[in-house]
Amino acid sequence: MIKTLGTEDTLENAGLTDEEQQLFSNARPRAYEPYPIKAVEDFANWARANSLWILAFGTGCGAIELRPLMTARFDANRFGVAGRPTPRQSSVFIIGGYASVKTLKRIIRSYEQMQGPKFVIALGICPINGGMYFDSYNTVNRFDQYIPVDLYITGCMPRPEVLVAGIMELQNKIKAGRCDGANRYVENFDWYKANQKKVIKNWDMPDYNW
């Protein structure tokens, strides 16, 4: 069902040309509401926790340890983890370390295109406070100003064992219903957008990439 939205609910999409404005949706994202019956929600969460599909987007150095993680030795498939090529099919976004400004734009785009429920894991020190690139002109220092993060896995770079531990921790969090990053994004949408636009100077995509 397509809801017609009043002007106060819509996004401006100021970065687009008039022609493009017709092509993209200007609706705001909506928060996820849990099922009214707790047992159903718990079951759904259990199912989500055991089919974590990772978006194949190596955004930084951390991506190199994802390959050993997915192959024979550490074999993350046994946790229900699989790699997916497109954001539409995946539910976990692993931020592999530092995010340069150019990549941040693509991260935002891919993240918004992912369908809920979606979770974000950030690897390494760089997304927390900039790590060893704290003074670099091209990498962001505090990643959760731009995208909400559900779980940090520390290390420079995190070993596959730590990644496995992190995935299990994420599963526990999901089962307990405490992974609300996507909802935080929707609730504080304007704050996140303002932060994003502060660093991305050539904003030429819709405000929310449906």
Binding site: G130, D135, S136, Y137, R142, V199
Partner: peptide
Amino acid sequence: TRVFSEERFGHR
């Protein structure tokens, strides 16, 4: 670059 990074990206 340090000054720029502090201004643009902020600290935690």
